[in-house]
Design a protein around this nucleic acid. Structure first.
Length: 157
DNA sequence: GCCAACGTTGGC
DNA sequence: GCCAACGTTGGC
């Protein structure tokens, strides 16, 4: 594994878009559209690279936690939904010349048999510094270390 | 449904 | 540039 790869946790509400949706999507790939937070946007625009590994997190649902693995499969490009007037993600302040929102494509890799629950993650001593566990953290995209990434996956075994 | 925490907006 | 008001996130 190349050492310049980065590791991420990306949240999605499974009622809207789950790991199952991603697995069944065309090419098992989706543009990660709808992010309207500057910090999360900046991660996609400035830091994500093809091959980066993603933990797919289910939020605001019955069983919250990491539901599977995905991978970044595109370079950054403007989120097309910001230009679509009828879209809930439409942004009147964005133009094609000066887009405001950027995204990457994400491809399905694996769906865990059981969701690795937030509770399990929270009680793992090695994961005590994980960003999503910090008080008040609501960011939908956060980086994690390779060690944290592997530790989370190991909780499912 | 509640509510803490955070981000954004807009008046000044 | 400050900050109050408002909107959103997301666990519970």
């Amino acid at each position: 594994m190349s050492t310049n790869l980065q590791f991420w946790i990306m949240k999605s509400e499974p009622d809207v878009f789950s790991i199952g949706h991603l697995e069944k999507a065309k090419n098992q790939t989706t543009p990660w559209e709808g992010v309207r937070n500057y910090q999360a946007r900046n991660f996609m625009r400035d830091q994500m690279k093809i091959g980066d590994q993603v933990l797919f997190y289910h939020s605001s649902c019955d069983v919250t936690g990491v539901a599977g693995i995905a991978e970044v499969t595109s370079v950054t490009y403007p989120d097309p939904t910001q230009f679509i007037k009828t879209s809930e993600y439409f942004d009147a302040g964005a133009t094609k010349d000066k887009p405001r929102w950027f995204l990457v494509d994400v491809k399905w890799q694996k769906t865990f048999k059981d969701v690795i629950t937030l509770e399990k993650i929270r009680t793992a001593p090695k994961l005590k510094d994980l960003t999503i566990l910090k008080k008040g953290n609501r960011l939908s995209i956060t980086p994690c270390t390779e060690a944290e990434f592997k530790n989370i996956i190991s909780l499912g075994r």
